[in-house]
């Protein structure tokens, strides 16, 4: 399996989220203008900056995200500001979920969550999959985990 990227539509989800966050962050500025504490251009500028950062982050995030199932481990490579590469040995997989949140359902996407006994990487989440892709990946990982025949070492 070569490195897989996410479904492009996940960008829409992330951009929408960025817009929402930008709106929330801009609200105090708008409030301050309403109370005549700040000049009128500030919420516009702040909103634009937040939006630019958020959307840029969302797009870069999509570009950075990749996952790959190699011979004995699942590799995830992600993160814009802090790049994170996670190696999940297949023998350590405890269980695998595929899940669809309301937003994901709206966008016709799903994600796959891999659990190990480790506490920090307890949920390794692969977002932006098609619903079929997510359940296929879940089945695939489950099968490989069974085949890897591991112990949980706890």
């Amino acid at each position: 399996m070569t490195a897989q990227t996410l479904h492009p539509r996940v960008q829409v989800v992330w951009v929408l989220r960025a817009v929402l966050i930008a709106a929330v962050l801009t609200a105090p500025f708008a409030g301050a203008v309403y109370l005549d504490r700040l000049p009128e251009w500030t919420p516009v500028v702040a909103g634009a900056v937040f939006l630019l950062l958020g959307v840029g982050h969302a797009l870069l995030r999509y570009r950075r995200w990749s996952y790959e199932i190699r011979e004995d481990a699942l590799y995830l490579d992600r993160g814009v500001v802090t790049q994170v590469r996670t190696t999940v040995p297949l023998v350590r997989i405890q269980h695998v979920d595929s899940r669809r949140g309301p937003v994901e359902r709206g966008a016709g996407l799903a994600s796959c969550v891999v659990y190990t006994a480790g506490s920090r990487g307890a949920d390794v989440r692969i977002p932006g999959l098609t619903p079929d892709g997510a359940s296929d990946l879940r089945e695939e990982l489950k099968r490989l985990a069974i085949r890897a025949d591991g112990e949980d070492a706890v």
């Binding site: 790049q83 590469r85 996670t86 350590r92 920090r120």
Partner: peptide, 11 residues
């Protein structure tokens, strides 16, 4: 006992 190996690099 290793469960995951995580490689992080901040900016």
């Amino acid at each position: 006992r290793i469960q995951n190996v995580i490689d992080t690099r901040t900016v």
